[in-house]
């Protein structure tokens, strides 16, 4: 597990996190790989992980019987996938399908949640970081909804 440390220290998500917290977090982390076409998770399933993407590309999709799979967003190297592990009801809202072979660090959400409950300072740090990503995604989604390239935009 020690080998994960330099990767996590470098990642913007964990930037400036106290080393003792990093050690706690590393205890909940593991290296994972997914092949193209594989689903990392599916809508409605229990959300028990989140992922720091190291290489490859994944699509967040929603499926409709009339229109098929609609891609809402793609994520790649250096980005974070999943925040449903942190908030009840701990269920995924979308499907995550791998577009290009993916290497990531997976974090056990239940393990992290327990550590956050035990140490609220760690919890606050993580919630702040996740909130930052949620806000960025919300702002990007608003822009996406504006249909800025449509006529009369």
């Amino acid at each position: 597990m020690q080998t994960l440390e330099p990767i996590l220290v470098e990642h913007p998500f964990f930037k400036d996190l106290e080393p003792r917290y990093l050690q706690l977090i590393i205890g909940c982390a593991s290296n994972v790989r997914f092949d193209s076409g594989q689903f990392i998770f599916r809508e409605g399933e229990k959300a028990n992980q989140f992922y720091l993407l190291r290489q490859g590309k994944v699509a967040l999709e929603v499926f409709s019987p009339e229109r098929g799979a609609i891609t809402l967003q793609t994520l790649g190297e250096g980005e974070v996938l999943g925040w449903s592990w942190l908030f009840p009801p701990y269920r995924w809202h979308f499907d995550a399908r791998v577009l290009e072979p993916l290497r990531a660090i997976a974090f056990d959400g239940e393990c992290l949640r327990t550590k956050c409950e035990e140490d609220h300072d760690l919890g606050y740090e993580l919630v702040k970081r996740v909130a930052h990503i949620v806000i960025q995604r919300l702002q990007a989604t608003r822009l996406q909804l504006l249909d800025i390239y449509g006529l009369h935009s």
Partner: peptide, 23 residues
Amino acid sequence: VTVDQAMGAWHGNVGVVTTLIPR
């Protein structure tokens, strides 16, 4: 390249163009 909306066979990026800048 990124698109705001995609279905089916598109394997490229989806999301607004600003999301490409940090990448």
